[in-house]
Design a binder for these strands. Sequence first.
DNA 1: GGAACGCTTTGACTTAAGTCAAAACAGTCC
DNA 2: GGACTGTTTTGACTTAAGTCAAAGCGTTCC
Lengths: 276, 276
Amino acid sequence: MQTSQKSTLQTVAQFSKLKIVSRSSGSCDHNEEMIGEFELSSWLQRTLVFQGLSRSQLVSIVQIAQLQSLNKGELLFKQGSEATGFFVVKSGRVKVFQVSPTGKEQILNIFEAGENFAEVAALDGKPFPASAATLEPTELIFFPRQAFLDLLHQHPDIAINMLISLSQHLRHLTGVIEDLSFKDVPQRLATYLLKLSRSGIGEPSTRSHPTNVVTLDLTKSQLASALGTIPATLSRAFYYLSSEGLIAVNGSQIELLDRDRLQELSYPTKQDCSPS
Amino acid sequence: MQTSQKSTLQTVAQFSKLKIVSRSSGSCDHNEEMIGEFELSSWLQRTLVFQGLSRSQLVSIVQIAQLQSLNKGELLFKQGSEATGFFVVKSGRVKVFQVSPTGKEQILNIFEAGENFAEVAALDGKPFPASAATLEPTELIFFPRQAFLDLLHQHPDIAINMLISLSQHLRHLTGVIEDLSFKDVPQRLATYLLKLSRSGIGEPSTRSHPTNVVTLDLTKSQLASALGTIPATLSRAFYYLSSEGLIAVNGSQIELLDRDRLQELSYPTKQDCSPS
DNA sequence: GGAACGCTTTGACTTAAGTCAAAACAGTCC
DNA sequence: GGACTGTTTTGACTTAAGTCAAAGCGTTCC
């Protein structure tokens, strides 16, 4: 988080010179280059954008892929800066966010392994509409813009996958706007907690009852950013939901005590049906 | 606006049975069918999604295109309803919006002639993430979902154009979120007015100085929806900007008296640069 | 003209949520 | 075990903006 912007930009620049760089220190890596290429194409096959592609297509993709390893809190790019290319998360997590002139942060989306981001800037070449930074140590697969565009033109299958991916992102932003425009902070928090619990985080527990304990995947400050508010207000929202008996908070472990009422809070049933 | 939802849905259903229906009453129309087809393909060539396509590609597009004529205030589709297909605006304007449980409306985007919308639902087949209604008498070119998908697979050029179009929409939503999350209502209004004036509405006037009188392209109620607020609050925002000497309001004619200060209000210069 | 309708403004009030600063808490590191 | 750092909570206060309802305007249409 405190990593200076300058050093991070250098990191990006530095990596974009390299071809394939496996810096992963965890797993077994003998003969880095070759194993890297082979494993990478198998792995790409399971991502959203590159799924369903032929081996030969994957090979040409791997040709232009660049691996980047980043520490926690590193800045990938800044809103307003020139488009560099397109990213796929290999491991770790990345937040895409905007910062207001007064320093308030709004997280637009958080991307996990297998997901991709920054297609918009890669596609139209205009400046990034948001900034991106890692939330934890992260490995990225980076595609420089022009090579990526060539790829798209050569392999229409990728373009189709890309359309689906863009659609998902658009849908997501649509939901963010709905939340910001229609819901107060406790409602947004309730929405978030329910989504989290549905996405199967939290205690594995027995299949019998879907676990009602979720573990926050963000610090509360980050969560505040994601919900379009600030830590102080989020804290009060937690207190409010607790006082109403909807949840029980213990650090980052949240127990959902009353799913029904949370659900109702999160999405009050529409009473009217007439359009504007 | 008051047109009942039921009658509108019937309209859509009714039209989706037809092939090409030119209901345009304005221009000269002898032998509707043939002239319709020919003119349509020339016209499509100038739209965002279908530009740069070959004559033969345009022909296959026209094959599945359906023309719809709608009155002012008709509902095209409702948030949550099943995806039907993809639309291009031939003439008129369409608003895409969400309605909160309490009846508050948030306009996500307004589409004019040559623009397209509802790609997301057409692509992924999930329910519409927002509703759409006409703002004025409007002609639409409609592509049923499956036919549209087939087209995409057959003509990768369209997929590429589509990517660009989706990118634009994503960028736009990004801006909406930025406004909602960071700006107060007067700031959003200032932003809107500046954008309007730059987009060259208002008095044609001499080229020497870019006209400083803009004509609102929406009623003030609609504008309130577009800015994520309500009429009463928007009215006060107009009053505030007037009282500060930034604008002069005369009905839907707004004179921008002090562009510099409007600009500054709209986008306060960032003072910090450090990432979160 | 004037009733009728919809849009816009205004006033008085309420409330959600931001600000700022201090305290509490938690985790890390000698 | 403290000292240190960063995060979270809390308290007191301010402010933007929503609510509700009443007037004010402006069109359209008999």
